[in-house]
Design a protein around this nucleic acid. Structure first.
Lengths: 150, 150
DNA sequence: TATTGTTATACTCTATAACTATA
DNA sequence: TATAGTTATAGAGTATAACAATA
């Protein structure tokens, strides 16, 4: 009976090694990525915004929010700080005056073109510790897991 | 030449689907877990501390920091707020007066015993969308990935 | 009326470093 | 001198909700 209870509890918590591994992998990744972005003077949310704006003509707050999962109130502050660094600008949409397009400035565009490829190489070093097959399998399983939390 | 550059760039960014999947899975998990903890009035870092203290006689700040990766300055504030809610207490170590043991209070112990099993079941629902085999494989790959970021 | 973005409020966490008290 | 924890500082992000301008 003690044994049965123990084995039932073990089964109940069967997912915990995966949960712990997910947290460890993400925290390691996030800290490493943040170190890379710090060189460019960006926080992670700021880098996310610059990243989604790259190679676009600009996006509204609503669109940026959809891509980054950052809420509109928070986004106002992040864009304020990016605008303070002259990396983006706000442009009111001519067709709908309620909408504000956020666009990369010239220096924001240069940052995107120079910093992000370096960041990609920097990240690649670590992700490449997994083989191509392992990366594909991990991506597939994580997509399935992500879908479970929708 | 265009094609070669393209394929080289494609290979250079080969890890990005995995990176995106990692971020999506973690963010989904973190938001879902935070919703569960909110019912108990806990933030994620606060829940982490309660969790590591559970089933122990207490831990010093240093030990808690090692288990949670929270720095000592930050931990002071988190423990302050948990103490304000009467979930933990500080006890100076009798053998080394520099050290403070953080212990679950009675109500902290009850919260640990009542909330955490519920949280485990609540999380399990989602993680169980992956089969046992998939969970094991995902955990293995994520551990390997986590090790790459050490 | 509904939508877009801003503002206000209040809090939590973070990093960094100086500080204290003990050892 | 080294260690444990606190305090100070300054910022950044979060949630929530009320708000103004526009559609």
């Amino acid at each position: 009976m003690g044994a049965r209870l123990t084995s039932k509890n073990a089964a109940r918590q069967d997912f915990m090694p995966l949960m712990r591994a997910l947290v460890r992998a993400y925290q390691g990744f996030a800290a490493y990525a943040a170190d890379g972005h710090r060189i460019a003077g960006l926080t992670a949310p700021q880098a996310d915004v610059i990243f989604v704006l790259g190679n676009t003509g600009g996006m509204t707050f609503r669109e940026i929010g959809e891509h980054t999962l950052i809420s509109k109130g928070t986004l106002t502050g992040i864009v304020d700080r990016l605008e303070g660094k002259r990396l983006v600008r706000r442009v009111t949409s001519p067709t709908d005056q309620r909408c504000t397009q956020v666009q990369l400035s010239d220096s924001g565009g240069r940052l995107f073109e120079q910093h992000f490829p370096r960041q990609v190489d920097y990240l690649k070093q670590r992700f490449d510790r997994l083989s191509k097959t392992e990366r594909a399998e991990a991506a597939r399983l994580l997509e399935k897991l992500a879908a479970a939390f929708w």
